[in-house]
């Protein structure tokens, strides 16, 4: 959708040369002209100010808070250096939260992408009435977190819920969805995947419909199976989108909060106490701002690492 710069630049070698000179001239002026500097500050100033107040200051303050103990009213009292971090990283409780979060994030990302691919592949077929299915598959996009949580809470309800009634009817054992630690994790994963699916489906469908049909025609002539076509034409062609969707889903899952708050509150036995929810609880329930700050810093580092890793590893496998 964005126009690439290559398209708009004139193609003759002479004009390319001219443009280069122009840019060089501008750069020279920029470093020399004090007036330009003044303008640069004037234009960048407001955004720097906003970033400073809303991003940089809170970041520095968080770092500062994480090195102290805070009292009942949230004021720093005793400097403790890195001991908040050490306490966290040696506490079995925190490490289990970390493990739980990683499990959740990967499960959600993998399942969402897999299901999204399957649905998008089905819906990309040109069949009568496919528009209806496309709408249905992407319908969850318009559902807010609270609605989704309440909807699934009803389904998971142990005495009057759909799943409970269905398993009674079929004489299957009852699964205590929200009270058993393992089942609760899956309940949250299912709900998250359900919520994410609409968006993922739509993006992947869009990508699939932009794959040139000539590739498939050629493959058909060669006699390639539809499975072969999916893995060797569709997947490589949509890999930039796949890459984008997986990063977005991963980061969004790390930040998952509303569903946890509404469905499990981090329970049972901390089985769904993800890092973000933990920060919220430690800060705004327990009033332990120092520890919550240390947790925020750790979470920031983790998300940054994952983003970096994805760019380094996944990007190599993406065909633009």
């Amino acid at each position: 959708m964005l126009k690439s710069p290559a398209q708009s630049t004139p193609t003759s070698p002479l004009s390319v040369e001219k443009t280069k000179n122009k840019i060089a001239d501008q750069e020279a002026k920029f470093t020399l002209n004090a007036k330009d500097k003044y303008f640069a500050w004037a234009f960048l100033g407001p955004s720097l100010l906003i970033l400073g107040v809303f991003i940089f200051y809170p970041m520095v303050k968080t770092l500062y808070l994480s090195l102290f103990l805070t009292n009942t009213v949230g004021k720093t009292t005793v400097f403790v250096g890195l001991s908040n971090y050490i306490n966290l990283l040696t506490s079995a409780d925190y490490l289990s939260s970390l493990g739980v979060t990683l499990f959740y994030v990967f499960a959600v990302t993998i399942i969402t992408i897999a299901l999204g691919l399957v649905l998008a592949n089905l819906a990309s077929k040109r069949l009568p009435g496919i528009g209806l299915f496309r709408t249905l598959f992407s319908a969850t996009m318009g559902v807010s977190v609270s609605v989704a949580a309440i909807f699934w809470l009803f389904i998971f309800n142990p005495s009057t819920g759909f799943l409970s009634l269905a398993s009674t009817f079929l004489h299957l054992p009852q699964i205590p969805w929200l009270t058993d630690p393992t089942a609760a994790m899956w309940a949250v994963i299912i709900t998250t995947v359900w919520m994410n699916l609409g968006f993922t489906f739509l993006i992947l469908l869009g990508a699939m419909s932009s794959v040139p049909t000539t590739l498939y025609e050629a493959a058909n002539i060669e006699g390639a199976s539809s499975r072969f076509q999916f893995f060797h034409i569709t997947i490589p062609s949509i890999s930039p989108t796949l890459f984008f969707v997986s990063i977005i889903t991963l980061i969004e899952s790390f930040k998952s909060f509303g569903l946890i708050d509404l469905m499990t509150k981090g329970g049972p036995t901390n089985a769904t106490n993800m890092l973000v929810y933990r920060i919220y609880k430690d800060a705004f329930y327990s009033g332990n701002f120092a520890q919550a700050s240390a947790e925020s810093i750790i979470l920031t580092i983790i998300i940054a690492l994952f983003t970096l890793l994805q760019f380094k590893v996944l990007e190599k496998r993406v065909n633009y």
């Binding site: 142990p158 005495s159 205590p176 469905m263 499990t264």
Partner: peptide
């Protein structure tokens, strides 16, 4: 029925 608001909703519903 577990803990939190959902537990209370569920026990009352039941």
């Amino acid at each position: 029925y577990g803990s939190g608001a959902s537990a209370e909703t569920n026990e009352i519903a039941a």
